[in-house]
Nucleic acid binder design. Structure first.
Lengths: 234, 234
DNA sequence: GATGGAATTTGCCTTAGATCAAATAGGCGA
DNA sequence: TCGCCTATTTGATCTAAGGCAAATTCCATC
């Protein structure tokens, strides 16, 4: 395997504040892996042998319930860590991660985490900062689910995806990986039928353009208006 | 102020694996605070000057949304840390914490966290392990909200409360602090009316006994059956 | 270009649970 | 003990969104 260069990871926010020599030591222990679309990166309950950094592509993190439901926890974008069970004292992965498109990731054996954490304090600080924001995110999701209607949640989800992985095109902001109505339903706790109805309505109003596994946000502002509409419950 | 003794914290899981001398150093920097029922410990957006350990009592952690909703994030039991924004690279508290009953807490200035983390690695490891399980919890909540009906969510919430803060009485397991229908509604994303109806129905079936700001779980097993009943959505 | 399977759309019906509106019941302070 | 404030209960509606069923459309592959 060709040896990896620190330029791959320099400049990423997780590696902020780390000296070049240290970056070399870090990347020296990584191996790079290609994962084809729809292939799993790791699976729920599986022994957490490695942690990962996504270099290119998009990864969907999904939890399955015993009774066969699937809930999408988050999408990972390039530059983000994932599978960091070891940093949180877990020995197994808490969810499934599958490549939404062909991906390139770096992988480190989990047993390196403690060493990394002590040798590169900014790395661990940055990582925990990221964990903190994920915890925030998760709480925001709970709040959304408790207080907002489906329409607002779906609008929010699209805006989040557009911001996180949007690519400007002449039509509007294209969500940069294949995403089905079912996928959106799993992110927002609804059904593909309801998502389809909403997208159809929004398409009529010119807010979005969508097709098979594809969504383009045409008018983000007006979507924001929908997302922020009055929540109903007392 | 009387100086504090390490016996207050020895044996708590966050301090597992820490030498007695180190415990002394840790507790030497704490100050103990009494908080009366319904008084805030810290508030959302406020500068995170301290982090806390609950010694006695129960604390409710609540997030308020801009549009006036309140969602209960979790209840803290004795022995748990809270307000550890600094460990996650935040400078403000992410939620409100209010004493559900009269409480005793230890408080440390946030600026001590980095020192503690490097001087007492097990402390930081234990803390991050706890953060990991809170992240897990939050994800579980999202999943519950997405896939389960109100009845199951409320049953689950009661079981969780009973497990976490239940006190055995001759009637059954009493939830050991005042909790209203409204509080339960805020934990489960529903309304006090629906909670009231459920509790009434369960009372008729002899599953629980409840009164003003009081719930006793009489038959946990049968509640578990309800909690695990088929979720509906596809 | 034909064929088959998956993704999507839509209409219709149903229902869990929110909303609205009173009535009732505790518990606490005067 | 009385009165008041707050928590709770319960009934009567209403409705957002889920469930069901049947097209339809889009790709990919043969």
């Amino acid at each position: 395997m060709a040896s990896l260069d620190r330029s791959l990871i320099a400049g990423l926010s997780v590696f902020e504040g780390i000296a070049a020599a240290d970056l070399d030591r870090i990347i020296g222990q990584a191996r790079s892996v290609r994962v084809a679309r729809d292939q799993p990166l790791f699976e729920q309950e599986q022994d957490a042998h490695s942690f990962f950094l996504l270099l290119d592509g998009h990864v969907r993190v999904v939890k399955s319930t015993p009774d066969g439901h699937e809930v999408t926890v988050r999408y990972i974008s390039p530059g983000e860590l994932m599978g960091i069970a070891s940093a949180l004292g877990r020995t197994t992965y808490p969810a499934n991660a599958v490549a939404a498109v062909d991906c390139v990731v770096l992988a480190w054996p989990s047993h390196l985490w403690p060493t990394f954490a002590t040798s590169f304090p900014s790395f661990s600080a940055n990582t925990y900062k990221m964990v903190g924001s994920r915890l925030q995110d998760a709480h925001m999701r709970v709040i959304e689910m408790s207080t907002e209607q489906v329409e607002q949640r779906v609008a929010n989800a699209l805006l989040k995806l557009a911001k996180q992985s949007g690519k400007k095109t002449e039509e509007g902001i294209l969500i940069d990986f294949p995403i089905s109505r079912q996928d959106i339903a799993e992110m927002t706790g609804t059904t593909l039928h309801t998502v389809s109805r909403l997208l159809s309505a929004w398409e009529d109003q010119g807010l979005v353009k969508s097709g098979r596994q594809k969504v383009v946000v045409v008018e983000p502002h007006r979507l924001v208006v929908i997302a922020e509409a009055r929540g109903s419950k007392s």
